[in-house]
């Protein structure tokens, strides 16, 4: 955790990539200077990193996002500054990629440079409470689809087992068991477990690597 210059979060859509990426960037910024987060989601115009802009600003994380995110302009656009992710080697880069293989398409153009520099983590965000990644086979299928399109092999797994507001610490522990099975089959290490800060208890504290998550607040209706 926090040791690579580039950290890319990918996974099934709705697996929690944006929450994980934003909180990771904040934690990284508490430890290192010059952190940028790149929102490369070309799939979904809603629920984007820009919703966390105040938090990111507070911790000095530079946000690079399409100016059209969360507006009525529904086009798959990226910010031109996104190239800094691979070109500006003095800055730490956290990348939030859109869901599934369709989302990973946006990463493809950066992948050769990321591999060439070879100072990166490409992390598969895994939530076994999502119907399509409830089984190992389902998760494998999505992992392989993303790698094919994104052209960047994964280097690790993030256990992000959650049921939204109803998540219990037991769910997180169960998710870790699932992630371990997935780890054995894929050979990818579990880099950390993401868990909402307010449900961290003794059970969670036994897990070695934890990223506490402060949810992004979207509105009073959620």
């Amino acid at each position: 955790m926090f040791d690579k210059r580039v950290t890319v979060f990918m996974g099934h859509y709705g697996s929690g990539k944006t929450f994980v990426a934003v909180n990771y960037a904040v934690e990284l910024a508490k430890r290192k200077k010059n952190v940028s987060i790149y929102d490369l989601d070309i799939v979904n115009p809603y629920f984007r990193t820009v919703d966390a802009n105040k938090t990111l600003e507070k911790y000095g994380v530079e946000l690079v996002v399409s100016p059209f995110a969360e507006t009525n302009v529904d086009i798959p656009a990226m910010n031109a500054k996104s190239y800094k992710m691979v070109d500006d080697k003095l800055r730490y880069a956290v990348a939030d990629i859109g869901g599934d293989d369709r989302g990973a398409l946006a990463l493809g153009r950066f992948s050769d440079k990321i591999k060439e520099e070879n100072n990166y983590d490409a992390l598969f965000v895994l939530n076994p409470f999502r119907p399509e990644t409830r089984t190992i086979e389902g998760a494998l299928e999505i992992k392989e689809e993303i790698e094919r399109t994104g052209k960047l092999p994964f280097t690790g797994i993030v256990n992000n087992a959650n049921l939204g507001k109803e998540t219990t610490s037991l769910d997180v522990v169960k998710g870790l068991e699932f992630a371990k099975k997935f780890s054995t089959i894929t050979g990818l290490p579990i880099k950390f477990t993401a868990v909402r800060r307010d449900i961290i208890d003794e059970k969670i504290q036994e897990i070695k690597q934890i990223l506490p998550i402060d949810p992004i607040k979207y509105g009073d209706w959620l």
């Binding site: 709705g14 076994p128 999502r130 119907p131 959650n162 049921l163």
Partner: peptide, 16 residues
């Protein structure tokens, strides 16, 4: 693995 699953409205209605 669990009784409940986490779903987006659009996919939830499709599955239903």
């Amino acid at each position: 693995m669990a009784e409940k699953v986490l779903m987006k409205g659009n996919e939830a209605l499709a599955e239903a």
